[in-house]
Each structure stands twice: as structure tokens, then as C-alpha cells.
């Protein structure tokens, strides 16, 4: 039941319904459960026809930056790669 993929708000109409794009699939969701203002271009998590929250792009960027940093540390040999070429799905 949990659709875990972030969806981008592409349209908002008068009765607080939004059209969201989830990896190319468009659907209508209600924004009734969100207290703060939602704008076009925001990302939301959706569940059974409702947007549940806004996703913080700043926080997401912090995580991605941290991953990039450790990946770089691995590349430069700071973290050993014991198995070399293991296959990661």
C-alpha cells in the first residue's frame, strides 16, 4: 500500500487537488493532509490518493553529498574494497 517513490507536483487546482508525476505516471492526489503551502515543483510522498508530506530537497541533497563523499573516499583508497569486483545489484 505504501508507494514509496517521490512524486513531483505538476499542477494544483482550486479544490486543493494536485496532479503529481511519479516516474512518468500521472495521478491526482488531495493536498488536504498537508498544513504548509505546496507549490508546483515540490516533491511529495503519496499514499492512497493523498499527499502525506513535502520532501525536503535540502535534506536529500545532504544525504547525496555524504554518499558522494564516502564513494570518493573509497575510490581514493581510504576505505579498502576487500572484494574488488563484487557484483552489486
Amino acid at each position: 500500500m505504501c508507494l514509496s517513490i517521490p512524486s513531483k507536483v505538476v499542477e494544483i487546482d482550486e479544490d486543493n487537488m494536485a496532479t503529481v508525476d511519479t516516474m512518468g505516471v500521472k495521478r491526482k492526489v488531495t493536498l488536504d493532509l498537508i498544513a504548509e503551502k505546496v507549490e508546483i515543483g515540490d516533491y511529495v510522498l503519496i499514499h492512497v490518493g493523498f499527499a502525506m508530506n513535502k520532501i525536503s530537497k535540502e535534506e536529500a541533497q545532504l544525504s547525496l553529498d555524504a554518499y558522494a563523499e564516502i564513494a570518493e573516499a573509497m575510490r581514493s583508497g581510504e576505505i579498502d574494497d576487500e572484494e574488488g569486483n563484487a557484483n552489486y545489484a
Binding site: P6, K57, Q61, L64, A71, M74, Y88
Partner: peptide, 21 residues
């Protein structure tokens, strides 16, 4: 803020591998 990849960035095999190490 520029467009950010909220999906693939969190599935990047390189990131997964680095975390695993």
C-alpha cells in the same frame, strides 16, 4: 535550487558499495 534526483541517487550502486565497505 537545481533539480535533484530523489530516486536514482538513492539507488546508486557505487554509493551502496561504499556504505557496505
Amino acid at each position: 535550487m537545481p533539480e535533484i534526483d530523489l530516486i536514482e541517487g538513492f539507488r546508486d550502486p557505487l554509493h551502496m558499495k561504499a556504505l557496505a565497505e
